[in-house]
């Protein structure tokens, strides 16, 4: 299908890369919708950085790189970031954005120190953590039934984000109405007996899992772009929460396809191209909406003119028809 034109040597590796990127983008877009609506984009940024500490600690303690260990470490540190930021804000009387900035940079710096200390043991380098390298994703595969004579199952990163994508999807489908209410009006949710604190930390858990599973693919910096940009584009267009989720996912997938094509042509960084495409799509949306608004404001005076001179126009018609 895709073997014609400039995708002549499009192979299995490209399919794995695209599939991984697509799942990363879809998961982050869905989570991003709630972060945007709850004005918590900054905490998404924070968690995406501080989970580094979680991964490193989990690895040093268990000596394992299996998915449950990585997710567990990330979730614990992610929740700790959210909780400590909030506590620093309440108890320390600091601004809430300053509190978030203090905690996550602290955690991230600790993570960087640990990575550099144990560089020999940890299969992570700072470059890779910050930027990710989705092009290498296909080379780290998992085997079902042992490394020697097992069946190759495809890239580790693909299955990691695949599991997280399913968790995110099921959580949103099941908890949709609750998430809608706590995002729309937390006080109203409290008055309806909804445990707002639980749902806040539940959302933070999803953010932690999504960012850690996206690490290999896009890194700690660009995952923020994928959390915030497609959801923001959707915010400009959507009339309901369900629509916003679908539009955000559509934007994220478009960014993946455009970004990948551009990277393929220019032989540049795939994840950065995806992030730039997401940004360009957002600005294109804003410009189109502005043009549309302008057109409407010109249409209205025109309509008013017609209504005002209606009788005159009608008179003319009567005059002509009677002739």
């Amino acid at each position: 299908m895709l073997t014609q034109g400039f995708f002549a040597d499009f192979g299995m590796n490209d399919i794995w890369i695209l599939a991984t990127a697509s799942l990363v983008a879809a998961s982050t877009a869905m989570i991003g919708v709630f972060l945007i609506l709850r004005r918590q984009a900054l905490i998404g940024d924070a968690i995406s950085h501080s989970v580094l500490l979680g991964i490193v600690l989990a690895f040093l303690i268990t000596d394992s790189r299996s998915l449950p260990v990585m997710l567990g470490g990330a979730v614990i540190i992610g929740l700790l970031t959210a909780w400590l930021s909030d506590t620093l804000h309440r108890v320390g009387k600091l601004q809430s954005d300053a509190s978030i900035g203090i905690i996550f940079t602290l955690f991230f710096a600790l993570g960087v120190i640990l990575v550099s200390l144990y560089a020999g043991q940890i299969d992570l380098d700072q470059e890779c953590v910050l930027y990710g390298e989705i092009a290498f994703v296909p080379f780290d595969t998992i085997y079902l039934g042992g490394l020697e004579n097992g069946v190759e199952m495809g890239p580790r990163a693909f299955w990691g984000i695949g599991v997280v994508f399913l968790i995110v999807l099921v959580s949103i489908v099941v908890g949709f109405k609750r998430l809608e209410t706590i995002s729309f009006h937390p006080n109203l949710a409290v008055s309806l007996g909804i445990n707002v604190v639980f749902w806040h930390y539940f959302l933070m858990t999803l953010v932690s899992m999504t960012t850690v599973a996206s690490f290999d693919a896009v890194g700690a910096i660009l995952v923020v772009a994928l959390l915030v940009i497609p959801a923001s584009s959707a915010y400009l267009l959507a009339k309901s929460l369900k629509a916003m989720l679908f539009i955000a996912v559509a934007y994220s997938q478009a960014s993946v396809i455009i970004g990948y094509s551009v990277a393929y042509q220019l032989d540049s960084s795939i994840s950065a191209s995806i992030a730039v495409s997401a940004g360009i799509l957002l600005f294109a949306t804003i410009i189109l909406l502005q043009i549309n608004k302008k057109r409407q404001t010109y249409q209205i005076p025109c309509l008013i003119f017609i209504v005002k001179h209606q009788s005159y126009i009608l008179d003319q018609r009567v005059y002509h028809s009677s002739e």
């Binding site: 809608e180 729309f184 309806l192 929460l241």
Partner: peptide, 14 residues
């Protein structure tokens, strides 16, 4: 907020 009138009212049943 992207929400429709009917969905707001349904929150009352929620």
């Amino acid at each position: 907020f992207p929400i429709k009138v009917l969905d707001v009212v349904l929150m009352g049943r929620h």
